[in-house]
Design a protein around this nucleic acid. Structure first.
Lengths: 339, 339
DNA sequence: ACAAAATATGTAATCGATTACATAGGCGGC
DNA sequence: GCCGCCTATGTAATCGATTACATATTTTGT
């Protein structure tokens, strides 16, 4: 049973292929009666559009590439869900690749756009190497690239972000409000925009509250559980231990707490610990994690919406260039007043 | 700057498009000198193949759809990484969709294959509704559908699985070996093949060891953290509390332990708890989780390899139909001898 | 009632790569 | 020197949908 084509439908409905095509993509311009005949013929033949043919003719791939730093990182799955939901509503498919892998395989990122595999690209990785960013910026398809969550300083791509500064300041203020005066910060990876944004905001907020901040209270990490463990060891070794720790990610916070617990140090009794992100597990962690919540599904949906707008009205000047999404403080049990 | 086509390359190299195409896809049949001229012309023109055109002509999408039960579930990300790695090596792209979403949007799953969007499908969801399974089975493209991790009882799709029975028996034996005689089991969701396979294996192993097994020691769950919490409440309420609990997933085990901890019950001091999967977080959990490890990346790679073999040699009878991948017992700190 | 406009449909070119078939040239064998 | 074979390349049809343009038909305005 070969799949049937527009021709087959046309034959059955006794009209031209042009009419069938119009009926399907722009029903208003055909008469009621033909519309019915064609619909009937579509049903009879079991016609399915051949996307390769349409893509060739329309010069559209009807799909979008989503680029992750690392597929195995669960942080991104909810974002993907948001993206996917929005794309599929509009008849677009979602391609996934990881920057690591693309890089390893020697493929050029821009190829996905160049070779008509994807109409646009959502990049969830602000850590692309400068020469790759340069390549993306100068590519003719640069206006169909959008950054989400992370971004690249100095490059002018449209982007979706969350309120990193406000989230950081809310975190510091929460700790301040419940009585902490010595607060440490575990950062994300060196060179990452989120890391530096949150670190800068942290320093600024501490200054604003007139809190002392020793250099060694800023502990370098990299968003991972493992880095959180290391950071805990660093904290343990401090002469003066801050009574509260604001971590740049929930995973860091969990690793931090896990390591403390191995040393018999209790959270929040002995030290308060906060994360950032509100990943699914944060609520189930022991203790449940106080954190800054990002609506990851919304980030995904917004990114998809903005990118599709650019793909569809590529020449329109009135396109939103940056969306900043709200975050919120979620107080659970990993923070408490110092004793 | 329009992107250049085969025609452009042909013009520059002063050969026909046929020769250019051959040079690119089958260099052996063209002479050394033309090969050089064409390569040069490709470089000069910056030629990139147009995949839509090739896909149309070759009747291949050069992409594979991966279907998840739920995009937001982190269990799958490493599997995806394995799939993606293997696909991109072979020049294939990875499309992602979730069964939930496809279902909600009223799309038919088979459409992805029908309309030339994807050449094959890797399904990570054994819980598809019977009418959907029926549709997939009877579709002409049924031989390009492969199940991984989960499968559907009664349907005869090629599949990649892990040794669920052996893993379960290893778990029970570990608990037995360290001295437990009363062992409970928290199951996965009703109707899921993994749930029933593991439950049956659990019952069988208990019998083999001549251990008593009260019906209420089999607690219904659904792989989630939340279900683990509920199961803990059930366990707490038991007249006779088993001294060890084997959970059908790591998330269950974590929820279980988290809830116990809220009731002041210590793991492994008061009860031993095991999971299944060895998700990334298991090692960092407090206490680090004893579990059965599945190599999720290998599952993904194997699935991709098997599916591609079917896509490329669709008529070959010698195709592997089922791969069963090894699991291993990982002993950490959530299990100990009963006191 | 007739020109003009609006509506409905058909004809055929087109998107860009692949490939069956045709052809040309080179070479060896007899 | 002729035939056949092999190699390298070109010609042109093809995949299936879209759409500019042409044409036929109906409606509208005066």
């Amino acid at each position: 049973m070969k799949t049937s084509t527009l021709q087959d439908v046309a034959r059955v409905a006794k009209v031209s292929t042009a009419t069938v095509s119009r009926t399907l993509s722009n029903p208003d311009v055909v008469s009621e009666s033909t519309r019915r005949r064609v619909s009937e013929a579509v049903k009879v033949t079991g016609y399915r559009i051949n996307r390769a043919a349409r893509n060739l003719r329309t010069q559209r791939a009807h799909s979008v590439l989503v680029l992750l730093p690392d597929l195995a990182n669960p942080f991104f799955s909810t974002i993907l869900e948001g993206i996917s939901r929005n794309l599929s509503q509009q008849g677009y498919s979602m391609l996934i690749a990881s920057t690591k892998q693309v890089h390893d395989s020697g493929e050029r990122l821009i190829d996905y756009l160049d070779d008509a595999r994807a109409d646009g690209m959502i990049v969830l990785d602000g850590g692309l190497e400068p020469e790759i960013v340069e390549m993306l910026e100068t590519a003719p398809q640069a206006d169909r690239i959008l950054f989400a969550c992370e971004w690249v300083d100095g490059a002018d791509f449209p982007s979706v972000r969350c309120e990193n500064r406000r989230g950081t300041s809310a975190a510091v203020n929460h700790l301040y409000d419940i009585g902490h005066r010595k607060i440490a910060h575990v950062t994300g990876p060196e060179g990452n925009v989120l890391s530096s944004t949150r670190k800068d905001a942290f320093v600024a907020e501490m200054a604003k509250l007139n809190l002392a901040l020793k250099p060694e209270w800023i502990i370098a990490g990299d968003f991972s559980l493992a880095a959180g463990c290391l950071a805990a060891q660093t904290w343990i070794a401090l002469d003066v231990r801050p009574t509260a720790v604001f971590c740049a990610s929930d995973q860091l916070a969990m690793g931090f707490i896990a390591e403390l617990s191995r040393h018999g140090i209790k959270v929040p009794d002995d030290v308060s610990v906060m994360g950032f992100d509100d990943i699914d597990f944060a609520e189930q962690f022991i203790p449940p994690l106080t954190t800054i919540r990002q609506d990851r599904r919304l980030i995904g949906e917004t990114a998809a919406k903005m990118l599709l707008a650019r793909i569809v009205h590529s020449n329109d000047g009135n396109l939103e260039h940056a969306a900043v999404l709200p975050v919120s403080l979620v107080i659970r049990e990993s923070t408490a007043s110092p004793t």
